[in-house]
């Protein structure tokens, strides 16, 4: 028996909008600790990892570990039918091959049930070791989204470099080149507006902008984005989800061939 009730249903709506274009179908894993997902995009260049911890739900019942294969596009279609203030409950059962999304309006005067068939998805789970990063940049998520969008209009790849001057985003295309430098800036009245750069050593890596612009669809989930870089590892772009978890995007770099 599975019953997860999320008062802030909009979080789930935003999560689906953030991942449905990157990954078409995935297994949602439900366990006592929470509701999670790990999936790669079709070209195995990027990986998304989602965790919504059980204590973040208003009611969390998961009798046995359950894995639900879902087409994310279809799930997104259903969640779009939920209002921004609706309470969303996910119901499943290990016996049935369906999942139900229940939407309750705030005034409890409208209850909707959307039922979807589950799919069999064989997805190998990857072990993601905790790593030491050479540089970690924490900045306003809207700022990062704007930079990726702007650079995406000039070139296809972005070179992200962290030095003691700050974090640099560089691209070059047919029309020319663009270079954006963001400096450490903690002298702001709101902490979420600050840019904090933790650099253990300088690092510079190249990534495909189309993936970065796909990740920034998660901007609505958090005012802050954290970008962790290491020359030996994929970049991690992380958006925290209001005290209940996170959505992390991992992207493999491009190298000079």
């Amino acid at each position: 028996m599975l019953e997860l009730r999320l008062i802030q249903g909009s979080l789930l709506k935003k999560v689906l909008e953030a991942i449905k274009d990157l990954v078409t179908e995935a297994n949602f894993d439900c366990s006592a600790t929470g509701f999670s997902l790990q999936a790669m995009d079709s070209s195995h260049v990027a990986l998304v990892a989602l965790l919504l911890r059980s204590e973040g739900f208003d009611h969390y019942r998961c009798d046995r570990n359950l894995s639900m294969g879902i087409n994310l596009n279809n799930m997104s279609k259903m969640l779009r039918c939920a209002g921004p203030e609706d309470i969303i409950t996910i119901k499943g059962d290990d016996g049935t091959d369906t999942v139900t999304f229940m939407f309750e309006s705030q005034k409890q005067d409208k209850i909707s049930d959307f039922e979807m068939k589950l799919m069999d998805i064989d997805s190998e789970h990857l072990g993601i070791p905790d790593a030491e990063y050479q540089a970690i940049v924490r900045m306003p998520s809207a700022e990062f989204a704007r930079i990726c969008k702007d650079l995406g209009s000039i070139g296809d790849t972005v070179v992200i470099s962290v030095t003691k001057e700050g974090v640099k985003f560089f691209t070059r295309g047919d029309v020319g080149s663009a270079n954006i430098v963001c400096r450490q800036n903690t002298s702001v009245d709101k902490p979420e507006d600050s840019t904090v750069i933790e650099m253990n050593e300088p690092v510079s890596l190249t990534f495909a902008l189309r993936y970065m612009n796909s990740f920034t669809k998660a901007t609505t989930l958090s005012e802050v984005v954290t970008i962790s870089l290491s020359s030996e590892l994929p970049v991690v772009v992380e958006y925290k989800i209001a005290e209940m978890g996170y959505i992390r995007f991992y992207l493999a770099p491009k190298i000079e061939d």
Binding site: L126, A252, P253
Partner: peptide, 14 residues
Amino acid sequence: GDLQLIISGYFFQL
């Protein structure tokens, strides 16, 4: 051009 690496090369199969 650059060579795009894949993500599964970095993580281990569980």
